[in-house]
Design a protein around this nucleic acid. Structure first.
Lengths: 199, 199
DNA sequence: ATGTCAATTGACGCGGTGTCAAGTAATTTG
DNA sequence: CAAATTACTTGACACCGCGTCAATTGACAT
């Protein structure tokens, strides 16, 4: 409610953000966050009911600060389906590393916590909507491969652009961000665009 | 060592297997495994030093029983690069659901436990070797796309065939196993095979 | 029958989450 | 100015799951 209250709340969110980004989602405890926010551990619970909800709030906060929706929506302005696909791949692909730490924390929680699972599904639904819009635009231009339905093509693009795939390629395989984005552009084209228009 | 000892050990492994398969890796506790193996919780530690090692042993046990290596190696017999790629995709793609529950447990541990991370990396290295062999075979036939190096093509195939991607498509998107394998065959072809020879 | 080995039982420590009660310090409000 | 409200602190504690330990039992082998 009050000014001070909301200020402390955002201090907690910033602390969680910072720590999750540094540790890439692994072992961040409530006490760590409290300490970073210069607050007692118990006081965190005055602002968030539990760890999961704090993580969820942190991702929402991040999305808000980073203005995801606007950045993803920018691809709408593309003139053609091909351009739209490419713009979306670029926008989302470059967004991932900016939120990876926090996203990873939620991704880990997702496997054991129902609320985290829902929150993750919700955010990913937004990404999926972007994927579908790109596929629709392709189809509209008559450039969608005939081998897959719109739903299937959307699923494929969504999987290609999953955080896990990003993680595997950049972390496990050592790809640079640049290389990742370039490859995703090429691959999404190859996978979804009807043959004559490939490239 | 003794007969009884080894028998109990495999009873524990089977219990872990069964439970992980049922719960798909989420909330299986040491006490659950002990109970299923009709043994006291503490007795489990007479056979495995800790939870992580038990999980690792379970995956090894599973791989042994299911004879992964042989099944994956079968694709070596393919005459052409294209056939080899397809055979590998089919072999690995159909193996995933058989071990998913156990693999998922390890996948979750991987984020917080160093030993689990190494064990997972080790198993995935085997898969990667299969991917590389398929890519090499393609290259040998002059059918590897010129847009990617062997290393990059291997990374791409490896990511396409990751357990996480399988999980996303079959669990999140509701794909059947059949559909998954078919799509992976098509997609791996489109992504890696030089244009004129596509399908 | 004696010794060895597998397993049992009960207890305990540890780390992390979440809760509760009592108290304090600052700010607001009558 | 006094009283009430609000944000926060401190210390204690319960719960859960992992891992450990010590003392005991029961089986089997030589």
């Amino acid at each position: 409610m009050s000014r001070k209250n909301i200020e402390t709340r955002t201090r907690i969110l910033n602390a969680a953000w910072k720590l999750l980004e540094a540790d890439e989602g692994s072992g961040v405890r409530m006490s760590d966050i409290a300490k970073t926010a210069r607050i007692s551990r118990q006081a965190v619970y005055l602002h968030f009911p539990n760890r999961t909800e704090l993580l969820i709030a942190t991702t929402r906060y991040l999305d808000e600060v980073k203005n995801v929706d606007a950045r993803l929506a920018a691809s709408r302005n593309a003139a053609t389906g091909l351009e739209r696909l490419e713009a979306f791949v670029e926008a989302w692909g470059n967004y991932i590393p900016e939120v990876y730490g926090v996203a990873k924390a939620l991704l880990v929680m997702k496997d054991t916590d129902e609320a985290a699972k829902l929150a993750w599904a919700d955010r990913m639904a937004a990404v999926r909507a972007g994927c579908k819009a790109a596929v629709d635009a392709l189809k509209n231009d008559g450039l969608l491969t005939t081998e897959h339905s719109v739903k299937e093509a959307t699923d494929i693009l969504w999987s290609l652009l999953s955080v896990q795939t990003w993680e595997q390629l950049t972390r496990e395989c050592g790809w640079s961000q640049r290389r990742y984005v370039n490859a995703m552009k090429k691959l999404s084209n190859k996978m979804l665009v009807a043959r004559p228009a490939a490239q």
